[in-house]
Design a binder for these strands. Structure first.
Lengths: 232, 232
DNA sequence: CGCGGCTTTGATGTTCATCAAGTAAAGTGG
DNA sequence: CCACTTTACTTGATGAACATCAAAGCCGCG
């Protein structure tokens, strides 16, 4: 399944700039010793609703999704999360440390597991850390909430355009990229059916706004895509 | 407009159990001296997008809404917030302390204003406070996110049923209550048009699931409403 | 090789937004 | 306090947007 390696190369790890910027050296080394790094293959589930969650699990490399599973089996993808994203902060200390949704891996990924007991102690003992933590929490919450508000005000074309732009601008930082998710998962993330995701992508292709080659997307007319995203 | 009174009757205030449970007496008195209590009339705007936000503003009595304003003038109500609700925590320390959405008052309300500088100091100096703060933040975020995920999976009847049940179970704690919002605002909160909110309410009335008398709603067949909410 | 899941397109039907028009209620100024 | 204006509410008719259903090709995997 997933390989565990205890290793302490955290000094260069970017996460340090994320929420661990203000740790004392001893505190940081402590985190580093107690953390576990695990490698997950595409498609693997990290945790599921109902499961105890006693680690802060953040993404070091790869891509993951957090999703709700509905009673009829349909999924809703809450967010697609890139390395060093703060979303994991929202998953801990919640609901008596039992997961309320699922997390799985979209691309082969390396995850870091930090016992939340350590995080709790840091919050109690290091005010600067606590403050950084709070700032990140507030920002990631507001970003997620805004995602939903934004979607609610868009038609199907607007939603697909918005999604493509998000991948281009915040995940891959280029106009040509491989879709990390299936058409079905796109649908689950932006609230439409798989068929209509496909149809809309085909429309964009016919209108020469994008090129499609299987999972590969090339954005040709970014301006038009932006307009579609804004209007819709 | 709004009347300001500096008063220090906080010792009995329920807010103490919310996030201020673990303050030392001196800390609490400090908060109490520096807070301002303001009275707002129904319809008044507390802050708007773009405005500096240097206070934690929580609701002592009444009812408020937080809402986004779209480019075409349409609103989206993010949440309707009851006294001592933790949602205000999400509004501070964010976006360089500039509001990213609006807040206004649905019923005559008393709001408490605490300088966020005080909150910041507490987070730095009192680990227990910081921890309580974080717990509340995480819970309120997840609750808000779940609201949107839930809505996405419901049809119009399901949404209206869900909204009525929420008012009944979490705001008024009874089956007869006055709607605190217009039909238009209901629409803005659960993502549909005003006409269809009215139509759906009328349907429920004809089906004898609820009684309607202007703003007054009586839930007659709660079981059916729950089923509609779950299915839809 | 064959099965199942993913993708694609077309045809069909339902749900919902929009438009229109009228009534009721609430605020406004003389 | 009353005429006036505006805003909220209501219902019906229409059309557009979208989901659903169906069928077929594609691809990866055991």
């Amino acid at each position: 399944m997933s390989e565990t390696k205890q290793q302490c190369n955290c000094k260069e790890c970017i996460i340090r700039n994320l929420i661990f910027a203000h740790l004392k050296t001893t505190e940081f080394e402590n985190i580093c010793q107690q953390k576990a790094e695990k490698y997950y293959k595409k498609g693997q589930i990290v945790f599921e609703k109902g499961q105890p969650l006693d680690h802060l699990i953040y993404l070091k490399s790869g891509l993951v999704k957090y999703y709700h599973q509905n009673h009829d089996g349909k999924n809703s993808i809450i967010t697609i999360s890139v390395p060093y994203d703060a979303f994991p902060l929202l998953t801990i200390f919640h609901n008596n440390q039992v997961a309320t949704y699922n997390m799985s891996v979209l691309e082969d990924s390396t995850l870091c597991f930090i016992p939340i007991e350590l995080i709790r102690k840091l919050i109690f003992n290091n005010g600067e850390f606590a403050f950084d933590f709070i700032i990140k929490l507030i920002e990631t919450s507001n970003k997620t909430i805004e995602h939903f508000v934004t979607l609610n005000n868009k038609n199907l074309r607007g939603r697909v355009a918005y999604f493509l732009l998000k991948l281009s601008d915040y995940v891959y930082f280029r106009d040509v990229f491989e879709l990390p998710v299936s058409r079905k998962e796109i649908a689950e993330h932006i609230g439409m059916t798989t068929e209509n995701v496909i149809r809309t992508l085909s429309e964009f292709r016919k209108e020469k706004i994008i090129k499609i080659n299987g999972k590969e997307i090339e954005i040709i007319e970014k301006e038009r895509l932006i307009k579609i995203s804004q209007y819709g």
